[in-house]
Nucleic acid binder design. Structure first.
Length: 340
DNA sequence: GGTAGACCTGGACGC
DNA sequence: GCGTCCAGGTCTACC
């Protein structure tokens, strides 16, 4: 693709490969991580225009990001695209935030892990979270791929967008169920999409950075298809890291890596208590501990192909790999380092 | 407040 | 290749 391009200056410690391949959503359509080129591509919706983008960091960590596009953009559309890219890559999470996290949990200081990949819009993050509930990871991969193929739009070079709230709000439940294979989530997805398309008061509360964590959590729980796990996960996607989205993976991690014994409920409680001392940084400590474990089993995340390694995270696969590896994560400090 | 059962899809496994 | 079992979080009804 011959593309117009522009540059984006990231924070000095920013590494595209490390910071994109830091959370499972980089493996979900329409995102595509190109392992050979170490680039991220997808299409973005800018008002009613669609543009394909390819993001690279040719000179490595801390150097400018190169943003290639498959069509020329007006100044206004360029600003919209940049806003979405900044959100997706968490470029606004500056070095001071990163230092604060590393002070509380120094295990991640050497590698610089701190930023977690997310979507260009909150709506896409919410939908991706809902499509990850009550389904195994390959099911989530499939649902997102089909949502993009069936309801999303293509850019001039054929890259796909994630459907907008307005597009999904007017999609028939039968289409979502039979062609996108979302199952019983069909009506919940449409209702959520209508709420975002209309920007109902709940959505405005969720988007407001001034909303307290407690009100945010309560409001998220009122959304269709959003329970305790999804609410906590959407909170971390909004940069609120105090709550843990505890799920079956947390139990597996508690059992196989932290060595906890007992019922699922007891293990979830112990995992919660284990990370509670990290307070407003709890999720990142929890997540990177799990992510490092996955990388020990599957290799560095920046080498994962969406259609091969990226679909292998099933319970039985992880169990087999873990049994073969017998891995333990770096030891967590019992209490956060002082000076938070 | 706690719990049981339904909701769907697709992977795993046995035959 | 087919049938069956199971994993997965939310929601509702019920106690």
């Amino acid at each position: 693709m011959s593309l117009p391009f522009s540059s984006l200056i990231p924070p000095k410690d920013y590494s595209l490969a490390r910071d994109v391949c830091s959370y499972g959503y980089f493996l979900l359509a329409p995102n595509r991580w190109n392992v050979q080129e170490q680039s991220l591509s997808r299409a973005l919706t800018l008002d009613k225009h669609i543009v394909g983008v390819v993001i690279t960091q040719p000179k490595g960590k801390g150097t400018p990001l190169r943003i290639g596009t498959d069509r020329a953009l007006s100044k206004q559309h360029k600003a919209l695209a940049e806003e979405q890219i900044r959100r997706m890559l968490r470029l606004d999470e500056d070095e001071a935030h990163v230092r604060a996290f590393h002070k509380v949990d120094p295990r991640w200081k050497r590698t610089g892990r701190a930023r977690l990949f997310r979507s260009p819009t909150l709506f896409e993050d919410v939908l991706k979270t809902v499509t990850s509930c009550n389904v195994t990871w390959p099911g989530t991969v499939q649902m997102n791929r089909r949502l993009c193929e069936v309801v999303g739009r293509a850019s001039p070079s054929g890259l796909l967008t994630f459907p907008t709230s307005a597009q999904l709000a007017r999609t028939r439940p039968e289409t979502l169920r039979s062609r996108c294979r979302v199952g019983y989530r069909d009506l919940r997805i449409i209702e959520l999409s209508r709420m975002f398309a209309k920007r109902v008061p709940e959505v405005r509360i969720i988007e407001d950075p001034a909303t307290s964590d407690d009100l945010l959590h309560e409001t998220l729980l009122s959304l269709p298809g959003v329970g305790p796990y999804a609410a906590a996960n959407i909170m971390q996607l909004l940069g609120r890291y105090s709550r843990l989205p505890l799920d079956s993976e947390s139990v597996r991690h508690g059992r196989s890596v932290l060595g906890y014994k007992g019922s699922s409920k007891q293990i979830m409680r112990r995992v919660h208590d284990h990370f509670a001392p990290f307070e407003s940084h709890a999720f990142r400590s929890y997540w990177f501990e799990m992510w490092v474990h996955y990388e020990k089993l599957q290799g560095p995340a920046h080498t994962w192909e969406r259609d091969t390694t990226g679909t292998m995270f099933t319970a039985s696969q992880l169990k087999k790999l873990a049994e073969a590896a017998g891995h333990k994560p770096p030891k967590a400090p019992k209490r956060p380092a002082p000076g938070k």
